[in-house]
Amino acid sequence: MRDDDPNQNEKVDERSGVSRRDFLKISSISVAVPLVTGPKVVFAAGEQVPVHGPGKVPMEFTINGKKHKADLEPRVTLLDALRDEFDLTGAKRVCDRAECGACTVLMDNKAVYACSVLAIEAQGRQIATVESLMQGDKLHPVQQAFVDNDASQCGFCTPGFVVACKAFLDKHPNPTPEDIRRGLSGNLCRCGTYHGIQLAIAQLAQKGA
């Protein structure tokens, strides 16, 4: 079920039961400061802390070097924001549980699972998706190596794998086969193209890409 499915929203309202105000009353030390306008805040240890959500919050992102804005609930993952708000559908939603790697993107140059990062916490970070790799009509060396080595079959895991391979090679320019197995263990391919991917990595490592 999609996070923005209206039926699920209804269910939430019905079942969550506790209103925000009730919740603030029961939480031990925090005291609600109802403000007519401006951001909501609570007092915590004598200081004001802004509260975001549960409704939509204005957010701003830097994705592939460009600024993007959207109003999103705090529960929206980076992956869903990329795909549903910004039409960046290279990162795929497969397991949605930090296991398969199809949603791999770079956050501040480190590979992460976009399904397991909240969009709200990705603000102020440099996000790079597979869409950033091609320069005009020219494939990125990792993408070209996938083509040269027949490293993709159905192709659904490929965008995540390509991003993971790029991050891996940036950190391990001369990997051993053991480094490759371990370093790419966070991506799964159900067609079983692992051998081609290993060859692609080996080709790039020789080139020093």
């Binding site: 929203n9 609570v42 240890a45 802390v49 509260v51 959500g53 705090p74």
Partner: peptide, 16 residues
């Protein structure tokens, strides 16, 4: 859905 807070001190986190 949930609300999201980002305290900057341990004391704030504990009281939230």
């Amino acid at each position: 859905s949930f609300e999201y807070v980002s305290p900057t001190t341990k004391a704030q986190a504990v009281s939230l």
